[in-house]
Write a protein that binds this DNA or RNA. Structure first.
Lengths: 192, 192
DNA sequence: TCAATACGATAACATAAGATAAGAAAAAAG
DNA sequence: CTTTTTTCTTATCTTATGTTATCGTATTGA
């Protein structure tokens, strides 16, 4: 049941069974209904999860509008990681885009493992480095590519099929544009 | 000589003298001339540095143009961190914007410390988390703020005086716009 | 010191994006 | 199955940005 989660962690660092077992008692399978929130703006996040099935989105509020900035798919960690780390109220909300099955665990437990076990600590570093590299890529794309180029990069990727199931206005936000603008770009690109 | 570097590290994690001494033999003071490169696109980076004096910029090439995406000031770590981590050729170049005095050290040494010492490993995690949080903030600004709002955020910050010494077209890139556009925004903002 | 280069402001024009609204299509809810 | 809601496209209008070019000034380097 938890093996996909363990496998995913072990892409970063190998764990002995004993080390893995330090985490297991705190894992909990949870189902999220569509539109259910996993983390909420203004609240200090205490939990992270590993997505087994389904997908989620992360959004910020600006001028009363939801601005979607990230998606979480299966086999990935999700959660308001930086709120957990800083113990400050989260600036973002995480919502299930579909029915989801996730493995939930308290960040406190992970932190405890970070501080007491070298392998887990290494995992913590490698995970943060992995997150940072992803964010750097994303930032560079936003800085140096035009909206149309960003859209083309997105459809070039391997997430095309998944993306098709996500409402387009969320993807527009993700690319830093308005839904109307994305619709126009799609129209333009098709004609080329 | 190295105390500001140590202090900076100890903002993340306290080190015993013995732990600090593990790093000291590998530190080297280096002066960079204006326009001298510290890391170069296409080359695998092997060194990081801590800036004692001066400032540097990081840029990517796109369509034959340099796109500045980040600045490094004194009392901060600089370098092609992700190239060091991944041992892949760097996508970015780091250039001294002024005469610089930096403390240089091989990433290999740092990695060795990560893997053999718990305090250093913790530093590695906290550093990566810190970098990731900064990148997340930056990304969100790019996604949900308009160019003008981004400029206003920048001048609101505490780096105003430093920024004044940086050529404006670098700052334009950093904000994700063209130099001409930044000039117009500045003009517009003054009149309000 | 002088010449070359880099820098920033501005203008003119073309293009693309934002805002808003309307209508069709698709999905969700009852 | 029908109604309601959400989603997407399209059109119009306005505005901001990109592109290119010019000009005066500041900086740099020989």
């Amino acid at each position: 049941m938890y093996s996909s989660f363990r496998n995913n962690i072990e892409k970063f660092v190998k764990l002995t069974d004993a080390e893995w077992d330090l985490m297991v008692p705190y894992l909990e399978i949870r189902k999220l209904k569509k539109h259910e929130l996993f983390a909420e703006q203004g609240k200090v996040a205490g939990e992270l999860c590993f997505v087994l099935e389904g997908m989620l989105r992360q959004y910020y509020m600006k001028d009363g509008e939801e601005k979607t900035t990230y998606f979480f798919f299966d086999n990935h960690l999700a959660g308001a990681y930086f709120s957990c780390i800083s113990q400050k109220p989260s600036l973002l909300t995480i919502e299930a885009l579909s029915e989801c099955k996730v493995i939930v665990f308290p960040y406190k437990v992970l932190k405890e493992l970070f501080e007491t076990n070298m392998a887990w600590q290494t995992f913590g570093r490698l995970l943060a480095e992995y997150l940072a590299m992803g964010l750097e890529d994303r930032m560079v794309e936003l800085l140096i590519l035009s909206p149309e180029e960003r859209y083309l990069e997105l459809v070039k990727g391997n997430k095309t099929k998944i993306m098709e199931r996500i409402p387009q206005h969320y993807i527009a936000n993700y690319l830093g544009l308005t839904p109307v603008s994305l619709s126009r770009i799609r129209n333009r690109v098709v004609k080329k």
